[in-house]
Every structure is written in C-alpha cells, then in structure tokens.
C-alpha cells in the first residue's frame, strides 16, 4: 500500500458498537458491585467485565482502518443501503412497540405491507393481497397453537 495515500477513516458504527459493549460492561460491573462485593455475586461478572473492557480497548484502533481514499460512488451506494436498513429496522421497531396497542393482527398487516414496499415490491395489489393473506394465516396459526391469547384488534 502506498503510505502517502493511506489515510485513516472513522467507522462511526464500529465506534458505536464498541462504546455499547465497553459501556455496558462498565455499567454492569458498577451495578453488580453496588449490589454486593460478595464473591458469590462478582466471581464471574468482575473478571469478565474487566476482560471485556481490556479487549474493547485493544480492538478500539480497528475502528480507524487505513483506506486508500474512498470512491464517491461506493460511498453513495453504501449510504443508500444504510438508509434502507435503517428504515426497515425502524419499521420493525415501530411494529414491535405497536403490537399491544394496535393488536398483533393490524400491526402485522401494516408491517408486512410496509416491509414489502421497503424491500422493493411496488405492485400495490400484490402488497395488499400478500399482507392480508399472510396476516390471516400467521395470526390464526399462532392463535391455534399457543395456549394464551395474543392481543388482537379485528381477528
């Protein structure tokens, strides 16, 4: 690799992940120690948290990889991909949080229809028909199989 051209870029997502792992290990250790410092409480948690903390610091430099300079086209397509993943993840989150308010039937219908659109299906009749049939089959199947009720609005 040409050293003059090699620059370091920041992988922000990687940093977020490492911050999450290291941060949660520290928070967990502090919480465990606040509960009790008895061996029966921290025998595994303390050494493992410290191990995670040290490893996390060792890996930290990998969030700044060397690069020969980014191709603008690659960056644009990566951004477009990230936006689609972000939208689908957001839709999934909204679906899960709305399960008890909208009911499993309505929430599933809307999520499957929205998910189909986000994943590239553009024929409205296909989206509507598939979402409806899928919801009917899955909802009635799980209602039959599982011994406790699922919150529903229509079905």
């Amino acid at each position: 690799m040409d050293r003059d051209n090699a620059r370091r870029r920041v992988e922000w997502g990687h940093l977020v992940l490492l911050a999450l792992i290291i941060g949660s290990a520290i928070a967990y250790l502090l919480d465990a120690r606040a509960t009790s410092t008895a061996t029966n409480n921290i025998a595994l948690v303390q050494p493992t948290s410290v191990f995670v903390f040290i490893l996390g610091l060792l890996v930290l430099s990998q969030a700044f990889p060397k690069t020969d300079g980014d191709d603008a086209e690659t960056r644009a397509s990566e951004r477009a991909e990230l936006i689609r993943v972000g939208l689908l993840a957001a839709a999934f989150g909204v679906f899960i949080l709305s399960l008890e308010t909208l009911g499993f039937d309505l929430a599933t219908l809307l999520f499957v229809a929205g998910g189909l659109y986000l994943c590239g299906e553009r024929r409205v009749w296909v989206i509507a028909l598939y979402a409806l049939l899928f919801t009917l089959i899955v909802v009635s199947g799980y209602q039959w199989l599982v011994p406790f009720p699922f919150p529903m609005t229509v079905l």
Binding site: L88, F92, F95, T108, F111, V112, G114, G115, L116, L118, C119, E121, Y130, F134, V138
Partner: peptide, 8 residues
C-alpha cells in the same frame, strides 16, 4: 417477501 414475513 421473505424478509418482512420471517421478521413477523
């Protein structure tokens, strides 16, 4: 079709 269905 598979992605939203399997997630659901």
């Amino acid at each position: 079709f598979l992605i939203p269905s399997v997630l659901a």
